[in-house]
Amino acid sequence: MKRYVQLENVQKVFETKKGRFVALRDINLSVHEGEFVSIIGHSGCGKSTLLNLITGLSTASDGVLLCAGREIAGPGPDRAVVFQNHSLLPWMSCFDNVYLAVERVFGAQESKTQLRQRTHDALKLVGLTDAAHKFPHEISGGMKQRVGIARALSMQPKVLLLDEPLGALDALTRAHLQDELAKLVAAIGCTTIMVTHDVDEAVLLSDRIVMMTNGPAATIGQILEIDIPRPRERLALAQDAHYLRLRGEVLRFLYGRQYIAA
């Protein structure tokens, strides 16, 4: 398998008023094409910082970041992002929010009809055909997050980056969207990197889980391979011994020596 996203000795230092703050150090990670990787760690350890580096919204203080063999120089539509707080533009309908992305990526080579069709398809994929002409403030939190996912997927990105995409949702809606997300990503097959707080979510969706140590100067503590065959059934897994062992491993990392040391 090809290495698609590659981080070598990445370091991120923030220059603050109180001096240098080392947020990340010695991050080495390579993600294969089509792989689903989760990043998990305690609040404030630097998960968003790491994701923003891959997105290109901020630049590393040191180290090399590559995507498809090329240096990441800034953000671009080949790496679509689903933001933690949906980030839909409130003055546009759901349709227009997605259309803005579609138009940007395919506007040069496709007709208006084709662009509209793509937008419809993306919204249909997340089951929001009926809400297309509603505005963000008129729909629920779960629906907003789905529009955000539709917007990201509509761009047919090479890499999908998710920053706690379901973090703000209640447990039921979250479980439902996790299942949907698993299906969508499997169908499209794009490389996915997801930041999460939720151990079950990480185990259920990922091929590998990257566990980060606590900050400051956080780094990758352990990487866990999740070799559960897909498709994964939430209910069946609840009693699956292997699943429980993997889940226990993540919990041990998060609440074990790490936690005491902190």
């Binding site: 973090g167 447990a171 479980a175 889940r247 998060l254």
Partner: peptide, 13 residues
């Protein structure tokens, strides 16, 4: 279903 949240997720709920 049991969802284990690592941190104070309820703040953002």
């Amino acid at each position: 279903m049991n969802v284990v949240s690592v941190s104070k997720e309820w703040q953002k709920a």
